[in-house]
Amino acid sequence: MEYYTSVLMFGAISTIGTLGTFVLTGLTGLFSLGQAAFMAIGAYSAAMGVVRYNLPFAPAVILSVGIAVGLAYIIGYATLNLRQDYFALSTFGFGEAVRAVLTTSVQLTGGALGMTGIPKLTTGPLVVISLVVVVWLIRNVRVSRFGRECVALRLDETAAQAMGVDVFWRKMQVFMLGAALSAYAGALLAFYTSYAEPNMFGWMRSVEWIIMVFLGGRDSLTGALLGSFVLNTAPEVLRFASQMRTAIYCILILVTLNLRPRGLLGAWELSFSGIFGQRRSAVTRGGGSQHVS
């Protein structure tokens, strides 16, 4: 029982991190290959705050989220004006740089061996409440004017700009929000596993997050939530088939991308009122007109 609880907790924490990718990619269409680095920043700075500087739990977590948001602002300021590939490349470079710094500053972080002795402060209720609040927050962001402006700029940046959307600033805000979510998940993770090592947060992790988001559908919060929860939990549950499991996912995702390119759930949302669901799908319908012939 304990084992399954911990698997679920772990899955829920990773899901919060993955939702950082969902926000960024689903709202603005940007790809961050360094999203997991924000998780690393959250994990390490919160853990260091508590272990090395004796901060209480909550301020340490808030501080770590603040650091991640600040860094996101700096990277975004430099690259969000440029083409999307530059953004992907810069986030990739950022992620690897973070990992390199964490690995080499051995005195502070424990280096490649990882940081141990982090107190176990993350509790089950905290994780569940966090996940619920985060989902509620994202859902509200997506249906707000802000979210609709973001989807508009994803579909056609020039048109959105012509309609008065401040493209750069919207992208920046979304990027900072995504960074905050991933960093928060990192802080929860560090205090749950009481351990952090740089290689948990490599660029392939960010890539996995992108894949998870696309499996469920980047236009569907429900889909992304289910996709990331299942794929974040399954590795633990499917330990017996450890060799095959990644291969199985990948095939599953390839098939999905071919048969239902917009993800398993498309733009469908689980909602309490039907009207609400319809209005939202009207916002996010019509996945753009960029086709490759």
């Binding site: 996995e208 992108i210 894949i211 990644t246 995702i253 390839l254 991308l257 390119p261 753009g288 086709h291």
Partner: peptide, 18 residues
């Protein structure tokens, strides 16, 4: 199927992992 460019990108990273 005339998929969007993003799906090519996601497919390529999936193939890398696979």
């Amino acid at each position: 199927r005339g998929g969007q460019i993003v799906y090519f990108f996601v497919t390529s990273i999936t193939m890398l992992m696979l």
